[in-house]
């Protein structure tokens, strides 16, 4: 019984960390309509930032400052925000494809740095040796895992409440206004570029927070964590859960992560032996089908965006609710 609880705590910790990243993406995409194709870079910035600031010193390596956990975590978040700011400044004035491609490129470049800059990131063998907060004080691994879960859930709740408030604030309404009709927003004297940049940076900082928690959970980070599949997983969670809806984002994170790990569990046990080699491949195809199917038949996700704005004309409301974002229609 304690085993089930222990695994559940572990599962929820990971799902909670991923959910925080999904919330960050939701601010960018769901609320502002920005496509971030390099989630993993911002997640990784948080993780590496934390490890470099909070890790133990090692020969021939920069970093290892052994700063206290909250400071190191904040440093990681800041690093993620800085990268986002630089990318945002360059691309947010342009049409949306540029952001998607540039962020995708950032992820490739970031992975490249983590793999090669040994003096900074430890190279391909990664960074380790971070003392998890309170691990020694709590002692018992089981109690520690529960405490860690509680911390992750507290962060998740804080991010959720913060973003909910933000979305309901005049600022949040502005973001949606820009998303829906930039020209109209501009005509009201608003500066869409600055608002979008702020949303992009804030969302990336939230992803950095998730990355920091991830690295402290494993007490290890390596370029293998920087694979593009993470970006895809985070996106899948948001699309399935419901873009624009923070509760949907969390639901999506839990569901997709459960499906991902659960299908591995089932395929390992029940798939015929000759298919075992391809279970990963089959999993990718299934998840790809879920995404594409979702976009085709239920683009609003499981929990659609709740419209905070009162709208007259049922048709307009329905139409707007069934669209998860804006953009010019081409056909």
């Amino acid at each position: 019984m304690i085993g089930v609880v222990s695994y559940l705590a572990f599962f929820l910790t990971m799902a909670g960390i991923l959910a925080i990243a999904v919330l960050g993406l939701n601010l960018q995409w769901g609320n502002t309509g920005l496509f971030n194709g390099g989630v993993v870079a911002f997640f990784g910035a948080g993780a590496y930032g934390l490890m470099i600031l909070g890790g133990r010193p090692e020969a021939g390596q920069f970093g290892g400052f052994q700063l206290p956990f909250p400071v190191a975590l904040a440093g990681g978040v800041l690093l993620a925000a800085l990268i986002a700011w630089a990318v945002g400044i360059l691309t947010l004035r342009l049409r949306h494809d540029y952001l998607a491609i540039a962020t995708f490129g950032v992820a490739v470049a970031f992975e490249s740095v983590t793999r090669n800059a040994e003096w900074l990131t430890g190279g391909a063998k990664g960074l380790r040796g971070f003392h998890r907060p309170l691990e020694a004080a709590i002692g018992d691994p089981f109690l520690f895992s529960l405490a860690f879960l509680a911390m992750v859930l507290a962060f998740l709740a804080a991010v959720y409440l913060g973003l909910e408030r933000l979305v309901r604030s005049p600022y949040g309404r502005l973001l949606r206004a820009i998303r829906e009709d930039e020209t109209a927003a501009r005509s009201l004297g608003k500066n869409p570029a600055r608002l979008r940049l702020a949303a992009f940076v804030l969302g990336s900082a939230v992803m950095g927070l998730a990355g920091g928690l991830y690295a402290s959970f494993y007490a290890f980070i390596s370029p293998q964590d920087m694979a593009p599949i993470l970006t895809f997983q985070i996106w899948a969670m948001l699309i399935v859960g419901g873009a624009g809806n923070n509760r949907g984002a969390i639901l999506g994170a839990v569901l997709i992560w459960a499906a991902w790990t659960g299908s591995g569990f089932l395929l390992a046990r029940h798939a015929p032996a000759e298919f075992q080699l391809y279970t990963g491949t089959i999993q990718y195809i299934m998840i790809g089908l879920v995404i594409v199917g979702m976009l085709m038949w239920r683009p609003q996700g499981l929990l659609p965006e709740r419209l905070a704005i009162s709208q007259t004309g049922g048709e307009a409301a329905r139409r707007s609710a069934s669209r998860d974002l804006t953009g010019r229609e081409t056909e």
């Binding site: 085993g3 089930v4 222990s6 695994y7 572990f10 599962f11 990971m14 494993y218 390596s222 293998q224 964590d225 694979a227 599949i229 993470l230 991902w260 790990t261 591995g264 569990f265 395929l267 390992a268 075992q276 279970t279 990963g280 999993q283």
Partner: peptide, 19 residues
């Protein structure tokens, strides 16, 4: 259990095996 060479997936698999 398959790790997919993904640390997250591998750790989850190991955790499930242990717990």
């Amino acid at each position: 259990r398959d790790t997919q060479v993904d640390p997250k997936v591998g750790v989850d698999a190991a955790r499930a095996l242990v717990d």
